[in-house]
C-alpha cells in the first residue's frame, strides 16, 4: 500500500531540531510577512468580490445571476467543461500510460510537449487557432467551403480550453504510473486478463486518486480560463461568452454588481476545488504525494 518513505507535505513541528529553530521575534516576522501577503493578495480580493457582489443586497445579486446573458454564460462554461474535461481524461490517461509503461522513440519529446501549455501564454494558444481557422487562416477557405464554423463559436472555445488544460491530468498520472511500474499489469496478464481487463481492474484503480486530483485541477482551469478563450470567442453575448468573459463585459459596462456576482460564482468554484483538494490530500495524502513528483 502506501510506501512509508513517501512523505506528505505536512509541517512536522515535533521533528524540528533545535539548531534550525530561529528565535521568537524572527519567527514572528517571518510568519507575519507570509500572512500579511496572503491577506493582501488573496483574502482581501476574495472579500471584495463577495462584498461588491452583495453591495446592493441579495435581491440585486440573484437578479444579476438570473439575467439571460449570465445564465447563458454559465451554461456555456458548464458545457465547455463537460466536453473538455472528459477529453482531457482520455488524453491524460493515454499519454501517461504510453510514457510510463512503454519505451518508444520520441518519449522525451512527448513529455516535453505535454508541458507546452504551461510555458506558452494562453493568448498565444488562442491566436494559434485564429491563424489556423480564421477567415484568412490556413484552413479558413476550406472550412468556409464546407460550412464548418470553429472560430467565434463553441467548437473554438472548446479547442482553446483543451489546449490550455491538457497537461493537468497527464502530469498527475505520469509520475504515479512510473513509480508503480509494470508489475501489477504483468501479474494481471499472466493470470489471463486481456489488455482492457488489465486496464479496468488493475491500472485504473491504482491511479484513481491521482486521476481525481488531476480532474479537479483540470476542471477549475477549464471553467476559469480567460486568455485563450477570449481570443477565439468573439464575445457574442448569449452565445459565445463564458463566465470569465462575461465578467469582463459586465465590468466594462460599469455593471459592478453583475460582474462581481458572476465573479463570486467563479470564486466559489475555486473555494470548492480548494476544499475538495484539501480533503483528498488529508485522506489520501501519501498516494497523491507520490503523484506529485513535480
Amino acid at each position: 500500500m502506501a510506501d512509508p518513505e513517501i512523505k506528505t507535505y505536512e509541517p512536522h513541528h515535533e521533528s524540528q531540531s533545535a539548531a534550525v529553530t530561529e528565535s521568537r521575534p524572527v519567527r514572528w516576522v517571518a510568519m507575519g510577512t507570509a500572512f500579511a501577503f496572503l491577506a493582501v493578495f488573496l483574502l482581501l480580493p476574495l472579500i471584495v468580490v463577495f462584498h461588491e457582489a452583495l453591495a446592493k443586497g441579495i435581491g440585486a445579486y440573484t437578479e444579476a445571476l438570473s439575467s439571460p446573458d449570465t445564465r447563458s454564460a454559465i451554461r456555456l462554461t458548464l458545457l465547455v467543461a463537460a466536453i473538455s474535461v472528459p477529453l482531457n481524461i482520455v488524453f491524460g490517461i493515454s499519454a501517461a500510460w504510453a510514457i510510463a509503461k512503454f519505451e518508444f522513440k520520441g518519449k522525451a519529446f512527448l513529455t516535453t510537449l505535454i508541458d507546452l501549455p504551461f510555458s506558452v501564454s494562453p493568448v498565444i494558444s488562442g491566436l494559434v487557432y485564429v491563424l489556423l481557422f480564421g477567415a484568412q487562416g490556413l484552413l479558413g477557405e476550406w472550412m468556409k467551403a464546407h460550412g464548418l464554423v470553429i472560430l467565434f463559436a463553441v467548437p473554438g472555445i472548446v479547442l482553446a480550453t483543451i489546449f490550455v488544460t491538457f497537461p493537468f491530468v497527464a502530469r498527475e498520472l505520469i509520475p504515479l504510473m512510473q513509480e508503480q511500474g509494470n508489475g501489477d499489469e504483468e501479474a494481471a496478464l499472466s493470470l489471463g486478463a486481456n489488455g482492457w481487463q488489465t486496464f479496468w481492474y488493475v491500472t485504473l484503480p491504482n491511479v484513481k486518486w491521482g486521476l481525481l486530483y488531476g480532474v479537479l485541477l483540470c476542471n477549475a482551469r477549464a471553467m476559469g480560463e480567460f486568455g485563450a478563450v477570449s481570443v477565439v470567442s468573439g464575445h457574442i453575448r448569449g452565445l459565445t461568452n463564458t463566465m470569465p468573459l462575461h465578467v469582463e463585459i459586465l465590468y466594462n459596462e460599469y455593471n459592478a454588481v453583475g460582474a462581481f456576482a458572476v465573479a463570486s460564482l467563479l470564486a466559489g468554484l475555486a473555494l470548492v476545488t480548494l476544499v475538495l483538494k484539501t480533503l483528498l490530500e488529508m485522506r489520501y495524502g501519501a498516494e497523491i504525494a507520490a503523484a506529485r513528483g513535480h
Binding site: 500500500m1 501479474a187 496478464l189 499472466s190 486481456n194
Partner: peptide, 19 residues
C-alpha cells in the same frame, strides 16, 4: 502470448493488487 500459455507466475515483489 502469456495469456494463452496458462502459466502461474509469482513475482519477486508479489505484485498483489492492493485495492
Amino acid at each position: 502470448s502469456i495469456q494463452e500459455r496458462n502459466v502461474g507466475f509469482v513475482f519477486q515483489h508479489y505484485a498483489l493488487f492492493r485495492h
